[in-house]
């Protein structure tokens, strides 16, 4: 007896149309005179928040303000730029930090009742107001997912026009998990009424730093 794989592929093989070739890659792109403004406007219109910072240092100051305003006492943080190497505990002694890959203890349960999760970003998309995060050493999937607030420190240098441009320019292997985050988790499943924070964070705050 044939395996399912053979059966399916054999059924298809007789039907291949060799003459039909795929179209050339799609070239047309949006153009934004001010990609930063487009990113900020779009993310804000999708219930996200954007804070502008001049440089990485300023971004950390602003992060401190956000955490103070939240009254955050437990914060999970990915060990990635621009946070890697910063002595968080010395800078914010009132907060219990879980630094991914460095702090002992169960990351999942810490994230499940943390007040906020802080990450960097591997890209940001101006068109759609998206923040792209990835898994990898020191990069947890849960930090940007389980806590009620996600704060992303996004360098302007990683801002790209759109998904098309970013996907075309991206090189090398894909990490196991890459997520384009476009605003806070939301649902409209009960009577079409928007409610934030269904499974993921209720608030997404992008601190956009650099020129």
């Amino acid at each position: 007896m044939n395996t399912a794989r053979e059966d399916i592929l054999n059924a298809l093989r007789g039907r291949v149309r060799r003459s039909e070739s795929p179209p050339a890659p799609w070239q047309s792109r949006q153009h934004f005179d001010d990609p930063i403004a487009r990113f900020a406007d779009t993310l804000t219109s999708l219930y996200g928040e954007v804070i502008r910072a001049t440089n990485a240092d300023d971004a950390l100051n602003r992060l401190g303000n956000v955490l103070t305003n939240l009254g955050a006492t437990r914060v999970a943080v990915n060990d990635e730029p621009p946070l890697a190497g910063v002595d968080l505990a010395a800078r914010w002694p009132d907060i219990t930090w879980h630094i991914v890959g460095r702090t002992e203890g169960d990351l999942k349960s810490f994230c499940a009742d943390a007040d906020a999760g802080v990450t960097g970003a591997i890209a940001a998309l101006a068109e759609t107001g998206s923040i792209v995060v990835s898994s990898g050493p020191g990069r947890s999937r849960l930090v940007s997912l389980l806590p009620p607030v996600h704060i992303a420190l996004v360098p302007v240098s990683c801002l790209t026009t759109d998904l098309l441009t970013w996907a075309a320019a991206r090189a090398g292997e894909w990490p196991a998990n890459v997520v384009a985050i476009t605003g806070p988790s939301r649902t409209a499943d009960i009577e079409q009424t928007t409610a934030l924070g269904m499974h993921g964070p209720k608030r997404v705050i992008a601190i956009l730093y650099g020129e």
Binding site: T42, L46, V100, G101, L107, K108, L125, E127, T128, G129, S130, S135, G136, P137, G138, R139, S140, R141, L142, L163, E173, W174, P175, A176, N177, V178, V179, A180, I181, T182, G183, P184, S185, R186, G200
Partner: peptide, 21 residues
């Protein structure tokens, strides 16, 4: 929507040096 809130790309299971997944 311009994109859904979460566009998740999965390429294989968690790598050995991933902290979770």
């Amino acid at each position: 929507q311009p994109l859904s809130v979460y566009t998740t790309v999965l390429t294989g299971p968690a790598r050995p040096d991933d902290p979770d997944g």
